[in-house]
Design a protein around this nucleic acid. Structure first.
Length: 758
DNA sequence: TGCGTTGACCCTGGA
DNA sequence: GGTCAACGCA
């Protein structure tokens, strides 16, 4: 296969670019992966050595696929040896791990450093908040971590954070940040952000190292450049500075990771950062039908912060997009399921369809419908495989074997399975740790040796140390053998059974899958235990997706990036959900939501179904319902491209700036559902609401109808009702105003558009 | 120390 | 509606 054949002129220009900095603005479905692959193949064909090429991809999966394609083109079979090993293709994180393992000494970190995921980070922060006796409300673990992560993405260390702190709270945060870094260092651990940050620091502090890698990687390529953050930009800059051969591909309209520091100015100001840079544009779409593309173009045109481009295609117009307004999330799930059945009826495979949503929580209703109806599916994301409790437990043992300083791993497993070790012993171990400056493993060993423990505790400690010592002496064994030793040594499977949980079988299956993963890793002969552990830390559900399994995927729009399907459902298109409520009051965040919707739409080749639900429960049946307005994004799709199906129980009236539904339907369906708790939830599929006369809306209905509504208040101005409750013949509304969220009685509010008191 | 119950928090997104 | 930590009791 010749990758250069059948490239269009713009693609060709990119692939043949002589060198220097090049930015390729590549629209959705414009063949950017092909261009990147062809570019690398071209470089190799021109005599560039594989070891002189470094390519960053967004997912491990993309890296694997790219390596395979390049291998096929340049005729090197497999990934082992030759091109596969010499050519560096990987995500930012995986690449940094690889570099840091080689340069651990120069970077001042242990070679077997652990990689802390979110859960590990939380354990560290929780310990600090407790130790410093900080108020847990003001220092919520998630918030603290988010602030630290933001700082790291901007390459701001604790000292700098302290310097710019604007309040006592911020100074306290700086302190926590500093102690967090100390704790990670003591544990021999790096968090995800550190992987990038420490590499950048290494290249900055050690010009000799920077020079070495700069000389080696004569060509640096970056995919999904629009989602790089400042730290990643600096990394790329440092590596490419020597020769300036930087080839980046991105699409400002698909930038969807602003919340984790992605900096669109990396794209928008590329030419300033790299003087003399060339910019090329790929605007021909090879993926979607004309209608889908027109819809996507129309929607994204509402964004102001963009370079501006219009995709075109040669494909036929195809079917119109469909929009279904459902009564609630269960009705929505049924409509989705019927759409999928149609897809199969058209002779397509289920794995050529996907259901996309904004939040992972939405998967529940969808999954239960698909389960009931026996439609094969797979949920991607949420709690991923390597985050399952049993998987993390077992991995924690392996982590300890490689790095006994890893206190988070130690405390995770020291009494799992139960060994009679509790909080009393823990306090003693911690005292020895801080008193003598030793690892938790050594502290425990010392306590045993010195006879400081009760007989029962000493026996438990002996068992734990026995397992850890056995692993430690066999570090060079193949990973799968080591894993079997671990299972036997801890009797972990019996521990699982002893828990007597309902999902015992699932957990057992996960342990077996982990064993299989270890076996696969060993068979590939790709290296040490620490490499296996890094892989488990960095692989995501998307990376692990199997090819050729005939099932529909359920996943977030974020996770769908880079994938494509014949048929795509975008579910939950309601104001407050998609676009998400947290983005409604910020123009920039709203534009990011729109880009996310654009990404979702452009995953589709042939058929699109958009769905919304008039009511939707949060936190299960007990939480308040969400809902009120169809997403503005649906309204931004030109009407002639959209085929609307509305549940007959809902009187639906489109208006400018977002459609609303009114009348008894919403209230009635909610009432019916509430009643239906102990009864069959709903009538047979396919007939929902068709022959039903809507009941008159009671006060319940009134409550549900005001939520999401735009209102006006004499003092506070315009706001959005986020919640409401009955109060003495009126509604007590919780309203989000620009100045903050307040509780206001309904009689003080006027409706935003219809003037009717809410 | 082990175990069951209660109650808080949760549900933007993810390497 | 699910998870997890704190709490109280055996």
């Amino acid at each position: 296969m010749n990758l250069l054949e059948s490239l269009n002129p713009e693609q060709c220009a990119a692939v043949e670019h002589p060198g220097g900095a090049l930015l390729v603005i590549a629209g959705a479905g414009s063949g950017k992966t092909r261009v990147l692959t062809a570019r690398i193949a071209r470089l190799l064909a021109n005599g560039v050595l594989p070891r002189a090429i470094l390519a960053f991809t967004f997912t491990n999966r993309a890296a694997r696929e790219m390596r395979a394609r390049i291998g096929a083109v340049v005729g090197v079979p497999g990934s082992a040896g030759g091109v596969g090993r010499e050519l560096w293709v990987g995500t930012f994180h995986a690449t940094c791990v690889r570099l840091l393992r080689r340069e651990a000494e120069a970077a001042g970190i242990p070679r077997g450093f652990a990689i802390y995921d979110r859960e590990d980070q939380e354990a560290v922060i929780r310990g600090l908040v407790k130790k410093l006796e900080l108020p847990e409300t003001a220092f919520r673990v998630g918030t603290v971590l988010a602030r630290i992560s933001d700082a790291k993405n901007e390459l701001v260390g604790p000292a700098e954070f302290e310097r710019v702190a604007a309040s006592p709270h911020e100074r306290r945060l700086a302190e926590v940040y500093g102690l967090y870094q100390k704790e990670l260092a003591r544990n021999g651990a790096l968090d995800f952000d550190d992987l990038i940050g420490v590499t950048v620091r290494l290249l900055h502090d050690r010009p000799d190292v920077a020079e070495r890698y700069g000389q080696r990687f004569q060509h640096v390529l970056v995919d999904e450049y629009q989602d790089t953050n400042h730290a990643q930009f600096r990394l790329v800059h440092a590596l490419a500075a020597v020769h300036g051969n930087l080839f980046v591909v991105g699409d400002d309209d698909q930038s969807i990771y602003g919340w984790r520091g992605a900096d669109l100015s990396n794209v928008l100001e590329f030419e300033r950062a790299f003087p003399g840079a060339t910019v090329l544009r790929l605007e021909q779409n090879y993926r979607s039908t004309g209608n889908i593309l027109r819809a996507a173009n129309a929607v994204i045109a509402h964004n102001r912060a963009r370079k501006g481009k219009t995709l075109w295609c040669e494909r036929e117009a195809g079917a119109r997009l469909r929009f279904a307004l459902a009564e609630d999330e269960f009705d929505e799930a049924r409509r989705v399921r019927r759409f999928l059945e149609d897809h199969v009826r058209r002779g397509r495979r289920l794995d050529e369809a996907a259901v996309l949503y904004r939040t992972n929580a939405q998967s529940r209703a969808l999954e239960s419908e698909l389960l009931q109806q026996g439609l094969a599916h797979e949920i991607v994301g949420g709690v991923s495989f390597y985050q399952r409790r049993e998987v993390k437990d077992l991995l924690a043992y392996l982590r300890l074997a490689v790095n006994p300083a890893d206190a988070v791993a130690f405390w995770r497993v020291w009494n799992t399975p139960r060994r009679g070790l509790g909080s009393a012993v823990r306090r003693e171990v911690e005292a020895v740790m801080s008193g003598r400056g030793v690892t938790p493993v050594e502290a425990l060993r010392a306590l045993v040796r010195e006879g400081a423990l009760s007989r029962a505790a000493a026996r438990g400690a002996d068992r734990l140390l026995g397992v850890l010592d056995e692993l430690a002496t066999r570090l060079e064994d193949p990973v799968d053998l080591l894993f079997m030793r671990l299972l036997a040594g801890t009797d972990y499977l019996r521990h699982l059974e002893s828990l007597g949980e309902e999902d015992c079988e699932d957990r057992r299956a996960n342990v077996e899958e982990l064993a299989a993963a270890a076996g696969g890793f060993a068979a590939r002969g790709e290296g040490a235990l620490s490499d296996f552990l890094a892989e488990t830390a960095l692989l995501t559900d998307v990376d692990r997706l199997a090819e050729g399994v005939d099932r529909v995927l359920l996943l977030t729009a974020h996770n769908a990036k880079g994938l494509e399907f014949d048929s795509v459902v975008v579910a939950g298109l309601e104001e407050g959900l998609f676009p998400h409520g947290s983005a409604l009051e910020d123009a920039a965040e709203l534009e990011e939501e729109r880009r996310l919707f654009y990404v979702a739409l452009t995953r589709a080749r042939d058929e699109v179904l958009l769905t919304a639900a008039a009511t939707r429960r949060r936190f299960g049946a007990l939480g308040g319902p969400l809902g009120g307005q169809v997403s503005r994004f649906v309204e931004e799709v030109p009407a002639e491209l959209l085929e609307r199906e509305v549940s007959p129980a809902l009187a639906w009236q489109p208006r400018t700036g977002g459609a609303r539904w009114e009348g008894g339907g919403v209230g009635a369906s909610t009432v019916a559902l509430r009643r239906g708790w102990s009864e069959p939830v709903r009538e047979a599929p396919g007939r929902s609401g068709r022959n039903r006369t809507p009941e008159p809306a009671g006060r319940r209905g009134a409550v549900h109808r005001v939520i999401g509504r735009e209102v006006y208040h004499e003092v506070f101005g315009r706001g959005i009702v986020v919640d409401a409750e009955d109060a003495a013949g009126d509604l007590k509304c919780t309203v989000r105003f620009a100045s903050g969220t307040k509780k206001v009685m309904g009689r003080f509010l006027t409706g935003g558009s219809d003037g009717d008191p809410a």
